[in-house]
């Protein structure tokens, strides 16, 4: 009797989970893969085949865009880690008790403001008629308006800006759990700042670092607004290709193939990162 009730409640709890994962995650992704393996041979006539993937390989623009998206996303991830780590360390370990909470809140609030608004803000600052250009002209440093938008440096900066808080927040929570005595012990044993960082702090923070890197990398590779708004029409971001195939050309088969390739490629990079750092998905992303 007791075990029957337990079983029943387990099934009742499992049902929403199973419906969610099956109907909204597994089936749609299978459907996408199946669709990507259909070739159009005549109007409304389809055949099974790898044509969409062969098209991808034969057209350098497509795989160049994917490689570019991937390498720029890795660059953004590294920059976000390098810029974010000292900030997270400051919030978790150096700031006083009261300012710690305030600084952490200051990090959380922009997190909930739409990417669109943040990109819009950058456009207002950086465009030819924008604040920076006007300021430089007013101060007499330049005589002509300067366009800061539509180049790769701005795109990378904008992407770092968009994702960096997703790096800082898991790092703060990991570093927060670290006992200060560990760091002091490192110094007492004669370590200098660099060895303490390398031998004690970074190994301890590794789950947070990996978790932040995974989330940041996936968000960057999958981002659409920031590269398009800050990079303009020539930003060559892979999500733009997917949008183009789906909405502009209405070629869903090839769009689905591109979607699957993006997913496979980013998953491969994440898998590689986990293997190299000796972490698993369960003890990194799940914990933050």
């Amino acid at each position: 009797m007791q075990s029957d009730i337990k079983r029943l409640s387990l099934i009742l709890l499992f049902a929403p989970f199973a419906l969610w994962i099956l109907l909204l995650i597994i089936l749609p992704h299978l459907g996408m893969v199946v669709l990507s393996l259909r070739e159009k041979v005549a109007p409304r006539v389809y055949e099974f085949g790898f044509g969409n993937y062969i098209d991808f390989i034969n057209e350098p623009i497509y795989w160049n865009t994917l490689l570019r998206t991937g390498s720029m996303s890795i660059l953004v991830t590294i920059l976000a880690l390098l810029i974010g780590f000292p900030i997270a360390y400051y919030i978790a370990k150096i700031a006083g008790r009261r300012s710690r909470g305030a600084l952490f809140l200051l990090c959380l609030i922009p997190l909930w403001v739409s990417d669109l608004i943040r990109a819009f803000g950058w456009i207002l600052l950086l465009r030819e008629t924008g604040v920076f250009s006007s300021f430089l002209q007013w101060s007499g440093m330049v005589s002509e308006p300067i366009e800061f938008l539509y180049n790769d440096v701005t795109v990378v900066m904008g992407l770092v800006y968009t994702v960096i808080l997703f790096m800082i927040v898991p790092l703060v929570s990991t570093l927060d759990g670290m006992d200060d005595a560990m760091i002091e012990a490192g110094y007492n044993l004669g370590g200098n700042g660099y060895t303490v960082l390398r031998r004690i702090i970074v190994p301890y923070a590794m789950p947070g670092i990996v978790s932040g890197c995974i989330v940041v990398f996936m968000m960057t590779a999958g981002s659409y607004l920031t590269p398009i708004l800050l990079g303009g029409k020539n930003s060559s971001w892979f999500t733009e290709q997917i949008y183009d195939q789906f909405i502009t050309r209405f070629n869903w088969e090839s769009g689905a193939a591109f979607g699957f390739l993006l997913l496979a490629f980013t998953s491969f990079v994440v898998w590689l990162g986990l293997k190299l750092s000796g972490q698993t998905l369960a003890n990194t992303v799940a914990k933050s």
Binding site: I21, I25, P28, M218, G222, A256
Partner: peptide, 27 residues
């Protein structure tokens, strides 16, 4: 395994969630 399945949607790019659900619903 199921716990990892639960985490997974967070790391799938949003664009792909969008198109895959669009494809399934349209099919």
């Amino acid at each position: 395994f199921f716990y990892i399945l639960m985490i997974l949607p967070l790391v799938i790019p949003g664009v792909i969630l969008g198109i895959s659900i669009l494809v399934l619903a349209s099919n």
